[in-house]
Nucleic acid binder design. Sequence first.
DNA 1: GCAGCTATTATAACCAGGTACTAATAGTAT
DNA 2: ATACTATTAGTACCTGGTTATAATAGCTGC
Lengths: 198, 198
Amino acid sequence: MRTIERLPKRQRHQQLSRLIEENPFITDRELTRQLKVSIQTVRLDRMELAIPELRERMKLMAERSYDAVRSLPLHEVIGDIVDLQLDRSGISIFEIRAEHVFSRTGIARGHHVFAQANSLAVAVINEEIALTATADIRFVRSVKLGEKCIAKAYVRSISGERSKAKVEVFSYVGDEMVFQGHFVIYRSTGESAIEGGI
Amino acid sequence: MRTIERLPKRQRHQQLSRLIEENPFITDRELTRQLKVSIQTVRLDRMELAIPELRERMKLMAERSYDAVRSLPLHEVIGDIVDLQLDRSGISIFEIRAEHVFSRTGIARGHHVFAQANSLAVAVINEEIALTATADIRFVRSVKLGEKCIAKAYVRSISGERSKAKVEVFSYVGDEMVFQGHFVIYRSTGESAIEGGI
DNA sequence: GCAGCTATTATAACCAGGTACTAATAGTAT
DNA sequence: ATACTATTAGTACCTGGTTATAATAGCTGC
């Protein structure tokens, strides 16, 4: 009977996957010890499961984190700006992924939604250095994992003398408003800045 | 004359450091090609500069990113809460590190300062699920790389009927106030939540 | 000019943690 | 008995190094 002998193999495959997921730094030798099979079996199993060798796993992790580090400057703006009319309006899209949600509920953490809006409010201001001075925000409904958050910013006034701009941002999922915020942005012309925008 | 022959070595050391910093995935063989010296010289140089071999570098990067992934759940609260009196007040400390600042200016990005305050405002509410409904915030002065931001939250009112709490948060660097915020937190008793707190 | 020094290069043995391939063995199904 | 799968064993080879030992080149001080 095939099932009798095949089950242990599949079980071992699951165990092996779990062990490597739990500790990606485990060697085949250690897996041999824990699974009580020969090192060849471990390697055949990895082959079948398309799990790369330890060094390859470490390399992939290192590359992933290195790419993340390199792309950090891009994150100075949270969300992808898809339309921008300086000193007038702007639109950005931000997809809520696993790293943005409150793990227990799958609800996006507030500061990510805020960050998208703040980024856009700063970006829409046509100035070298623009920093958020104040913000008055309202989370209208929760944003969930997988949802695409579309933020629209409108510049309401620019008072040239004191270098302040008022920007309103509304964020939507589909046609539901999820967030609204009124930002006051300092359009710093170089001197002492007030805050860390995005 | 010693300086004549020693200079090229120090220059090469600088070049080598720079090359590895630019691309940590470079092999000694490739360094040999770029520096026009033997592979032994490259290895002696790495020894002198205490730069680990490629595989060790990748392992360190992988471990660092893996630790970061594992500690993510801890980041559900931004900042270390050092004092907490539920429904009354709380204090948290958050050190501004390189990953939190606007790279051009070394000024902390607004959403990190906001996130610390928001986290604390949510944490101080003695409820299973607490979500930010609205926030009225003001960035008083910029917070810079290396500064320790101390947030103090005070619960101002709890209206049991509609499950709302008002929380004030003030953040300081030393004795300078850098941020203030008025939060309205929903103390969700299980039904439809409004926002993604922290 | 020659010992003494540093810097560099060469050579060889060895290592971890594998891959790739071949072969043997055990169990079981038909 | 035959065929098939699963497992184990063994060997050669690979990358990207370490470690140690020795040879060579270039200059220095005297």
